[in-house]
Design a protein around this nucleic acid. Structure first.
Lengths: 318, 318
DNA sequence: TCTATTGATATGCCAAACATATCACCAATG
DNA sequence: CATTGGTGATATGTTTGGCATATCAATAGA
């Protein structure tokens, strides 16, 4: 039961002529006859009904042929599959991302990748940066959209590509502005005003980089954050703002999350800059990762200003 | 790109140890190393990441492995498929049948066959006997339930197995009995009464054997059939009887086709006997045919009286 | 009757798949 | 730090089986 024998069988079944089948196979007729005979002996039943002058498939041979064809076709496809796996044009890529990326770089990136490599299965998982980094270090997943750690140093073994930098803005209850509780000057919110308002924030453990970015702003402007409420989901935080529980400092791209009763206002003073980038195991040679990083680099280069992908993402979501 | 190489690859991928994989393959380690190296050279990418002490699949190797497994499994399945094709436990069987068999032997036969050989695809086609015989002689289809030709001689090259014999009965409008237009004696219809009534019948060309059976009855009882209407479908004939257009001589098993306004009455005199049997190409060695004929023989032996399968068929149809 | 064509048989050759022997390297262990 | 056991790679010899050449037997067609 050899692949060679199966190909011999298919050739004879297609030509119904041992001589021409042998020629097609690049061999001579006698060993082909022997190969078929050996196959028939092994199967215990004749595949061909031979007269002295003609060859015909037996009903058994005809039915078996269909199955053999499937296997041989699959076998012939293996080198091509290997090549495409090597090139990264087929396969599977597991991408994790922080929730803020969902309003930012993610949709355009995913769209670009899936149109460029439609046969790569892209598995998306939302997770916080620290969870993503731990998973990658444990060998799970392939690439992650993360907010890099506070000290700026990623764990050993991970590569990193910055993708988007954007300022934080304040998400405030619209009523607080209308009622004059928050004073705007030149369309901005003065730093002292921000520091004085109750704050809604991620718990530090879930998103240390983001947390430190916010508290750093407070420290720079001489104040201690008065935390009214903690919440994990961005949507939840905005809901709490909408309910008038406080203000929140959020990435500018969150403007894409329009919600009635919430206004996004630029911060006075030195607005914190949030960076989002792509990370992956340096030693992971999966071709689809290289392809994805290439796409991300190109996206980054073309997008230019950090606001550009935001609009793109809005279009994506419509 | 050889099946042998693929099996080598799978063995090493499963054990992650060249020595044990070689042992499992019944060979020594050096040629196995060479085989894998040749495969990697052919694919242009390493399948395994080797340190001096350990072997691990590369991401590329892991993804390709899944595809290779599918092909090799399919290949390993081929002998088993061949064996079952040879035994007739898998495959395809094309069965044609006359419409009267649908009320008779067919349902029980099909049920028995499909439960005994659930993996044989059974294709059913309704056709008249002459069409079936012509198709079989032309190499189309496998087995047919037919009413044997009038002279009793089937074409050369076809085998035949009698399955059911049953008398014809008269299908008459119930009103004709109630009104006394047809007189019963001892629950039977006198032959003279039958001969005098208008007849609904198959056209001879569609079912010569059946046609001759009916006209033979008329000839034996000294009369000429007065044909009120011809029809091809049994259901149509019974509908015409129901409409009071005449009487019809039909197989006793047609009692299974109960229709309001129609009564089935035994014939006086020598009631014609209708035979239905199975036919197939004598030289067709398809194993499923043998299996089907075996089932039919057993069905025939166990069923005994011709009425038995009728009740079975009624149960089937409920 | 003769010829051409077909698949089967007989026999010799050689590549390639395998085995044996050995090496180079490294981790574990005292 | 030296030693030992275990790993995959390398080198080389051996044999099997897949193939080619030569030929045969049988038959359809002229």
């Amino acid at each position: 039961m050899d692949a060679r024998q199966l190909k011999h069988f298919i050739a004879v079944a297609e030509t119904l002529h041992f001589g021409r089948a042998a020629e097609q196979l690049g061999m001579t007729q006698p060993p082909l006859s022997q190969s078929i005979m050996a196959l028939e002996r092994e199967l215990g039943a004749p595949l061909f009904a031979r007269t002295r002058r003609t060859v015909a498939l037996t009903p058994f041979g005809r039915q078996w042929l269909a199955h053999v064809r499937g296997v041989v076709d699959g076998m012939n496809a293996l080198p091509g599959i290997a090549r495409r796996l090597r090139d990264g044009t087929i396969g599977r890529l597991e991408l994790s991302f922080v929730s803020t990326a969902d309003y930012n770089i993610l949709p355009a990136l995913v769209r670009r990748f899936t149109t460029t490599f439609p046969d790569v299965e892209l598995a998306l998982t939302e997770a916080t940066s620290d969870v993503q980094l731990a998973a990658l270090l444990a060998g799970k997943g392939h690439v992650g959209l993360v907010i890099p750690p506070p000290n700026g140093a990623l764990p050993e073994g991970l590569s990193y590509l910055p993708l988007v930098t954007e300022p934080l803005v304040a998400a405030v209850p619209e009523s607080w502005i209308a009622e004059g509780r928050l004073a705007l000057s030149a369309g901005r919110l003065a730093a002292e005003t921000v520091v004085g308002a109750p704050l809604i924030l991620f718990p530090r453990q879930s998103a240390p980089a983001f947390h430190d970015l916010v508290t750093g702003y407070y420290a720079r402007h001489g104040g201690q954050a008065r935390i009214a409420q903690e919440a994990i989901q961005m949507q939840t935080i905005i809901s709490l703002v909408s309910a008038g529980m406080g203000i929140a400092l959020v990435p500018a791209s969150l403007r894409n999350l329009a919600r009635s009763g919430v206004a996004y206002v630029e911060l006075g003073g030195v607005a914190p800059i949030l960076e989002t980038g792509l990370t992956w195991r340096t030693d992971d040679t999966t071709a689809t990762i290289t392809r994805f990083v290439d796409i991300a680099k190109k996206e980054n280069g073309e997008a230019g200003r950090p606001t550009s992908p935001l609009h793109t993402s809005l279009e994506e979501r419509s």
